[in-house]
Design a protein around this nucleic acid. Structure first.
Lengths: 282, 282, 282
DNA sequence: ATAGGTTTTGTCAAGCTTTTGTACAT
DNA sequence: ATGTACAAAAGCTTGACAAAACCTAT
């Protein structure tokens, strides 16, 4: 057993951002930690202890109560999760490919129960969509499969989106440019942005730029995000977009968005997957 | 039985968007949930409980009373449904192909009873029509089969359309361009639009553009939707359509509609299946 | 017996478009429905109840009195009908193919008793004629069969046509162009038009355009309909037809009629099957 | 169709308890 | 470092209320 350096409570507290008092409380109340002691009785924490504290924090941030989070850490449930994500992604792909709705929903239920929405989006759903799109282009996935999977995932994500237009935060207007039909990544982006406290006005696929402008105007949006898979989707409306940029904060996203275009329009470029993009936008 | 971490009522409430008070009421009045408790008596919910709440919501949104929705969830009736849609679509195709009206109607009865109209349109009827059209082109379906299936489905959809011209909302005039006879997708579009609160004036197959203009004028329509399977269907009347666009809000739809044409005419393009198109139009 | 979820009266009313008051009246007066009740006495309807209401509506729309329609629904007469149309079409085809006049008449009697003329035309007779024509072209039907079937059906339809030249409405002159012998679809068209309140002057097969002109003139027709299976049938008389168009409202129909020709002549094009065409013409 | 009473169902309040982070005394 | 105290946040139960939806009867 390799014994790394041991930390005293003050140092551990600084590293994980949890007050010493709270660390002691977690130890006493939930037996979360069991540090060794110096001769004089000072606590000495190991790397494993730090891991446990971080897992505890992960549990709390997913909404578990302190008692439940500690129980999960003790049971190893949270550590398990890190190894669960990969297999679960494969399972989701398998169920969707054979169009087994029941099994797919169950897998999603399980994933969303164990992980935060953003984790599931980033690590499972968005990669799957990406993969499906590629297979579709190469003729390895049928139209029916593609339709089935998007319908099912759209249903789930929109169910999670309920009420995202209400609340307190600043408002983002989300839309696909005219002729663009891939709204799933945009929904994912909206969900990630909502998690960061924004309100979302979702205009969806194939939205005229004028509608975006009007919505942004009427609702007083802080940000308008336009998405397109093709650069042509933006270029066909470049004049309208430029006009929109003059009156509102605008960002472009999707594989059709490029730094050059963003520079020409004078708007923000959102890169990377939707969750990362939401992080950047917020 | 892997017991994941359990949630307290507040977090579950946040996840599903149902107030804690209502969750308790559903438990008390309908035994929808039976959460375990902490030593101190606080409720602790499992993943299965979240599933039940979401199923309850699904039931409510389909118009069930709270008591009935809860009963359906307890009986597992709603969870079953997710696996019902695929087989039902296959069954409908089978019954229509052998021209068994009674069985086809029964399948439709069952589907429409269990699901919303839009779900059935999107996932069963429209895909079937698409498939039938393809088979017909390849000579794999007979005229009689095609005729039988369209007549039966038209009958059902028009029965559901009854009274769609009456009501409160803004009015949409729907028509197929001259020589266009495929009115079923347009009916589906009308039904989806009605569900979104619109009133529908349905002019049907093979309608002169002048009739559309006159109807739009007389009834004061907010939107005129023209549908054609061939681009020639629109192009043959491009001048008339352009005139119509000058005086009314117009959208074109169907496989004959293209972004280029919509741009030339200065009207909206409705893409995707009729239900998606209705969403965009509304 | 799988008991699906039950609906309360409001939701059933929304689904079928019948007011709650009327649903209660049908229950009270005709025992159309027998819903179960909640403990508190609210009605709960099943899928079968919805079916009964829709069948009731079908009965009413075919002109039955409410009492009669309800009785028909209770007897299962209307549900039966749905299963009758497909088999009956097959039976008619079989009897005509083996030239069994007696059986063919019986099948037609039965069909015309149960359904409206237009339903029988659209769903049975016209598809049969279409199918017969195709088989004849492929050499799968003999001249004798073709002759027998047309003679028998012509007899029946003309019997139904008795008196269609008398009455109140505006007058339509119907004729096949010279050399055109297929008058059955035109008769069907006339019957459908008569059902819409028109009077019919039927000149039949192989009619000189001059005769059409004269009849239209003498009787004061509101519409002249010329039919041809081949485009050559129209083109051979294009000059005469153009002259006719100058003095009367004219429409062309049949597979020989095209949008281009109609445009050149400046007349109306009637597309689709005869019943649909009559709908368009009226 | 209206009138007058009942059921259903989401919401709320009052008063009390549990949970949990922090603080204080030893 | 330990043990105890405390207070804010979140929950619990009971009971009640009001709007919407339904009922019957006229």
């Amino acid at each position: 057993m390799a014994e790394g350096p041991q930390l005293r409570i003050g140092e551990l507290s600084r590293r994980v951002g949890v007050s010493p008092g709270l660390l002691r409380a977690w130890e006493r109340r939930y037996s979360l930690l069991d540090p060794s002691r110096t001769e004089g009785g000072l606590r000495l924490y190991s790397a494993a202890d730090e891991r446990r504290v971080r897992d505890m924090q992960a549990g709390l941030s997913r909404g578990l109560s302190a008692a439940e989070a500690a129980r999960a850490v003790r049971d190893g449930a949270i550590a398990d999760q890190r190894s669960t994500l990969g297999p679960a992604a494969a399972e989701l792909a398998a169920t969707l490919d054979v169009m087994d709705a029941e099994a797919a929903h169950q897998t999603l239920d399980d994933l969303l129960w164990r992980f935060t929405l953003e984790t599931v989006l980033s690590n499972v759903i968005l990669p799957y969509l990406h993969d499906l799109g590629e297979r579709w282009e190469r003729g390895k996935a049928s139209v029916a499969q593609e339709h089935f999977a998007s319908q099912l995932l759209r249903g789930r994500l929109l169910a999670l989106a309920r009420g995202w237009e209400r609340g307190e935060g600043s408002l983002a207007v989300l839309a696909c440019v005219p002729a663009e039909l891939h709204d799933l990544p945009l929904i994912a982006f909206g969900l990630a942005l909502r998690d960061r406290g924004w309100r979302i006005a979702f205009l969806g696929a194939d939205t005229p730029v004028a509608s975006v402008a009007e919505t942004a105007e009427v609702l007083g949006s802080s940000l308008a995000v336009l998405s397109s898979v093709t650069s042509a989707g933006f270029e066909a409306r470049e004049a309208e977009l430029a006009a929109l940029v003059r009156s509102h904060r605008v960002a472009i996203a999707g594989t059709g968005a490029s730094a050059g275009l963003a520079a020409r329009l004078g708007c923000q470029l959102l890169e990377g997957d939707p969750v990362a993009a939401a992080s950047a936008a917020a």
